[in-house]
Simulated scan of single mutants.
Amino acid sequence: MTANEFYGPELAQMRLAERQVLEAVEELQRVWKAQGRQSPVLYTSSRIKSPESMCRKLAQRGQPQTRQAALTRVRDAVGVRVICGFQDDVYQVARWLEDQAAFSVLETKDYISYPKENGYRSYHLILGLRAGPGRGMTVEVQLRTIAIDFWASLEHQLKYKRQVPHARLVREELRRCADEIASVDLSMETIRELLAGSF
């Protein structure tokens, strides 16, 4: 089943919502550049959740596998990921998005300050678009550092392997790696602050 078949006429609005959030991030980059500041954003990616992935999620939640349920009972049909260099940048970008008049913040989850049990760290925003071309849609924004993104990308690949020998050891090693990466993030932040104070 294609996205067009599953989401129907709502797909065009979903794409507008995706573009609107990406443009808000691009505007932040332009503002910082005009101020002579280095952009906090290294790169972005986005997606409309595939029908297969959405149906799996709806089934796991005991919801009907329909377009209406996908757009009203799940709020991450549209997703945007923002990758930053430093943890402090993640929070600055989050504040920028939270302050946009066209967006209302429906939910925040700070997995950087409060990591998941497996070590996952990211800052999640659910934005309701109350004005602009994507009006009426919700968009999940995931903000993370490049170091966190490296870990999360590999962890995502590994967890979808069905037969994992020594699964407990693998989980422990992943958690240890996540903690080490978080420590590196903090060290890099400290180095940036030291360099900024030396000029």
Rank of each mutant, 00 (worst) to 15 (best):
Ile126Cys: 06
Ile126Phe: 02
Ile126Trp: 01
Leu127Cys: 06
Leu127Asn: 04
Leu127Arg: 00
Gly128Phe: 00
Gly128Val: 04
Gly128Arg: 02
Gly128Thr: 06
Leu129Val: 11
Leu129Ser: 10
Leu129Tyr: 09
Arg130Ile: 11
Arg130Tyr: 05
Arg130Gly: 10
Gly132His: 05
Gly132Val: 07
Gly132Pro: 09
Pro133Gln: 05
Pro133Met: 05
Pro133Glu: 07
Gly134Arg: 01
Gly134Pro: 05
Arg135His: 08
Arg135Cys: 09
Arg135Ser: 10
Arg135Tyr: 07
Met137Val: 05
Met137Thr: 02
Met137Ser: 02
Met137Phe: 03
Thr138Arg: 00
Val139Gly: 01
Val139Ser: 00
Val139Phe: 00
Val139Leu: 01
Glu140Ser: 03
Glu140Phe: 01
Val141Thr: 03
Leu143Asp: 03
Leu143Arg: 00
Leu143Phe: 00
Arg144Trp: 00
Arg144Asn: 02
Arg144Cys: 03
Arg144Lys: 05
Thr145Arg: 00
Thr145Gln: 01
Thr145Leu: 02
Thr145Cys: 02
Ile146Met: 05
Ile146Trp: 03
Ile148Asn: 14
Ile148Gln: 11
Ile148Ala: 14
Ile148Met: 11
Asp149Gln: 03
Asp149Trp: 00
Asp149Cys: 04
Asp149Lys: 03
Phe150Val: 13
Trp151Thr: 07
Trp151Leu: 07
Trp151Phe: 05
Trp151Met: 05
Trp151Asp: 04
Ala152Ser: 07
Ala152Ile: 07
Ala152Asp: 06
Ala152Val: 08
Ala152Lys: 04
Ser153Cys: 05
Ser153Gly: 07
Ser153Val: 08
Leu154Phe: 04
Glu155Thr: 08
Glu155Val: 08
Glu155Lys: 04
Glu155Ile: 08
His156Cys: 10
Gln157Glu: 14
Gln157His: 06
Gln157Tyr: 06
Leu158Met: 10
Leu158Glu: 10
Leu158His: 09
Lys159Cys: 15
Lys159Glu: 12
Tyr160Trp: 06
Tyr160Met: 07
Lys161Asp: 11
Lys161Ser: 09
Arg162Leu: 15
Arg162Trp: 13
Arg162Ile: 15
Arg162Thr: 15
Arg162Lys: 14
Gln163Arg: 13
Gln163Asp: 13
Val164Ala: 11
Val164Lys: 10
Val164Glu: 14
Pro165Arg: 08
Pro165Tyr: 09
Pro165Ser: 08
Pro165Trp: 07
Pro165Gly: 09
His166Glu: 10
His166Pro: 14
His166Met: 13
His166Asp: 10
His166Tyr: 10
Ala167Tyr: 15
Arg168Val: 15
Arg168Glu: 15
Leu169Pro: 14
Leu169Ile: 14
Leu169Thr: 14
Leu169Gln: 13
Leu169Ala: 12
Val170Arg: 11
Val170Asp: 12
Val170Asn: 11
Arg171Ser: 14
Glu173Met: 15
Leu174Asp: 13
Leu174Trp: 10
Arg175Ala: 12
Arg175Cys: 12
Arg175Phe: 09
Arg175Thr: 14
Arg176Pro: 13
Arg176Trp: 13
Arg176Leu: 11
